[in-house]
Design a binder for these strands. Sequence first.
DNA 1: TGGAGCGGAGAAAGCGCTTTCTGACTCCCG
DNA 2: CGGGAGTCAGAAAGCGCTTTCTCCGCTCCA
Lengths: 346, 346
Amino acid sequence: MKARPHVTLEDVARSANVSLATASRVLNGTASVRADLRERVSAAAAELAYAPNAHAQALAGGTHRTVGVICHDVSDPYFAAIAGGVMRVATDNGLLVMLAGTFRDPDREVAYVSTLRAQRAAAILLIGSAFEDRAWERAMAAELEPYRRGGGQVAAVSRHRGLKIDTVQPDNKGGAAALAEALAGLGHKRFAVLAGPRKLSTVVDRLAGFTDGLADHGISLHEDDVVEAAFTRDGGYEGMKRLLAGRKRKLPTCVFAVTDVMAIGAMTALREEGLSVPGDISLAGFDDIPVVRDLAPALTTVRLPLEELGERAMDLAIKGAGGTRPRTVRLSGEVVLRESTARPKR
Amino acid sequence: MKARPHVTLEDVARSANVSLATASRVLNGTASVRADLRERVSAAAAELAYAPNAHAQALAGGTHRTVGVICHDVSDPYFAAIAGGVMRVATDNGLLVMLAGTFRDPDREVAYVSTLRAQRAAAILLIGSAFEDRAWERAMAAELEPYRRGGGQVAAVSRHRGLKIDTVQPDNKGGAAALAEALAGLGHKRFAVLAGPRKLSTVVDRLAGFTDGLADHGISLHEDDVVEAAFTRDGGYEGMKRLLAGRKRKLPTCVFAVTDVMAIGAMTALREEGLSVPGDISLAGFDDIPVVRDLAPALTTVRLPLEELGERAMDLAIKGAGGTRPRTVRLSGEVVLRESTARPKR
DNA sequence: TGGAGCGGAGAAAGCGCTTTCTGACTCCCG
DNA sequence: CGGGAGTCAGAAAGCGCTTTCTCCGCTCCA
């Protein structure tokens, strides 16, 4: 089947016996047009199943109705929830969302920004932890800066440092600290943390907050008590196994996984090892992704308003940069104690 | 801050002291250019942080490197998993993915296709159940047909009927039938089904398959045994509550939720009502989304190769329509018996 | 040494649309 | 009944890029 060229505005105009300008005016409602002509154009457009070429529209100085969203992994519930918020706001504003998943590859992230820049996306949203890496930061800035100079909007969820962009910040540190206090309040003294790679700022912040919160109760967290693993369910699973294997002797009474996703894997690992939660070990996560309340036991965590995180970021981007300083919206988390944590028996 | 116009190819050419044509050739590697000129152009482009205007490229007859993906809900793990597969293949092929969520609104779905058509997306992927609705089908066909005539590729996951497009089909019917047999094989006689809206073909197919499978064991499913609820976790929760409330007396020994997501909600409802799974009631789902193996008890379900579903669909779209007939790739599911189902005690 | 042949740079023609700018008409008031 | 104001359709100029097409200056062979 030969690919026939697309129906163009010119086809419509010709078919309706009017000029291009008139056809354009009718279809966009830009200016008033005599009723009969308007009628003819609409009819012709419908007849030919005309769809304006968005590229041509954009080129001709029209609007750019697409925004780019870059996250690490689309299938991670944490991002999915945030993306949900982003999409809602985008849809309400008639914007089309281009979603990109980097699979945690810094280079790919930069490449995507470049592509989005080429698309003249109205805005670019960066979702998730930034990489703590000078080279990456420079490369990123080199893409972002010209983009913004050209009128592009940029906003981010949960990153900061270096890149001077509008940000929606969940209170990772405060939330983790509050969680630590709640846990210590239950009577726990021996903790362990299931952390992600320290290159991610989210990990660093949550770890710091947790440590601080513990310190307030006179509990110190040693380096050995922190297990570093991949930032995924499998990472949590594997990390917990490692943690357990390491010290059959002096097990902690409470484990904090820096994300719910990791906690889910950890909980399964615990179960496989015949350890009961919270009977033998209490377990807590962070984020409150939707599914954790359905676990058995339901997971104690720090609730982040995930959808709102996305909505606010999209808002920031849409509202445009007001002053010269990057704006920061802080959203705090809230400790939610569920059945996965209890007073220690040991 | 005044939005300075974007850096254009012309700026680069001028700065490098060459013609537009030459600059274009260098940047695309289209033709050989004298080394020194090539050098000058590259340098100028880098210097100015030039990013080609993708719209202009597309307009000038260049390539369309974006594909559109339409699904019901981005934050549904089922779609997220499929989207993961789609994105992998897209990335491997240097394509940018535009993801749209319709929130199950048929009109919005049609509108998105229209927008994607305007974007001259290289391909459009429809993910998830189609609506069983003549009017919708006509509207959809009216958008899709001109799109394909203009050279656009269309592929879908898990729909068919009416729209004559390439499709990747999970074997909903066969999977559900196999599950029914496995469950009946465990000794269950009294079943109930937690179904989604019958407007969705997936629901219809799974229900039919399950009924058939049961029939093979001489078990019949009455209309009363099918509870219809929203196609979400909350739908599953609420549906199960309703199911339980309806018949305190003759409870089924086994409940089949047509999706894992609904099963998750159902399991929590069961737990809240003090019913143990599988002790009091066995529960099974469908899809095998990643999280269900981490539930306690782990969920019995029908495993669908979710990522592959997405990959194959993207493949179909990329490979383009060969013959005139729509192609169909069938992917079968596999019953996975886990702890949420057991022999009935009653 | 002359002409055929060729590599490679530049001019220019679109791609499909929006948006001035121009100009024809109608309408109203003096 | 004439002239200025006001409408509204059409011509044309881009938007930024790719891609012929043209033409210039070499090289190579007879």
